[in-house]
Amino acid sequence: MATDVHRPVTPTVTQAVRVEGLSRTFDGRAVIDDLRLDIAPGEFVALLGRSGCGKSTLLRILAGLDRDIKGTALVPRRRAVAFQAPRLMPWKKVWRNVLLGLPGKPERARAERTLDEVGLGHRAGAWPKTLSGGEAQRASLARALVREPDLLLLDEPFGALDALTRIKAQHLVAEVWQRRGCAVLLVTHDVEEAVLLADRVLVMDDGRIAHEQHVGLDRPRDITDPRFAELRAGLLRRLGVDTA
């Protein structure tokens, strides 16, 4: 297990996420079972796991969308989610979607600034249904970012994108994270994506964190780097896929 932490994470009292003894049961079946998880401020954590292992449930709990829980879960007040589907309100233009839910009467310029940040400033006045898949996902990301979150929750945000758009979107997220410095929890089933983006990769199994892997590679990361391939293969083995 790698212990080399590339980005020094100082053990401060304040954590971006502190979860202890968390359980969530569906009809008597424990999907999350006595789970423990800490995420440091500014840390990028990827959560891997087979489908149905409870990783999306954990994200929904941290987002405050599922409160039928036992145990402790402390999350920042300012947090934002980007879902697998963009989930834009089709009856609101893109910029109104971005500002939706913000307190007070925010100005359009604020939405446009954030849309510019994700390279979508020119589509601010468009209807969501006229956006392409990648554009809609970027709008969804802008909607999360405009809240200036301390914790950004990403639920397989690249899952529905085509291969080329996905690469661009991954770069965008890496860029945004480095600029903003918020903590990120990325739920994904793509091992390569996890190793590419995260400081720390967690593998979830049977409702708890079964494995933890620090990724000490320099950024920007090179997927052809043998160390990258080694990490990737190791994680895949953990997930029950033998590449050898």
């Binding site: 405050g64 934002a80 879902f83 989930r87 309100m89 939706l100 839910g101 909607r143 809240r147």
Partner: peptide, 8 residues
């Protein structure tokens, strides 16, 4: 759900 997550 998205609206909820946006704090509406």
């Amino acid at each position: 759900e998205a609206g909820e997550s946006l704090g509406l």
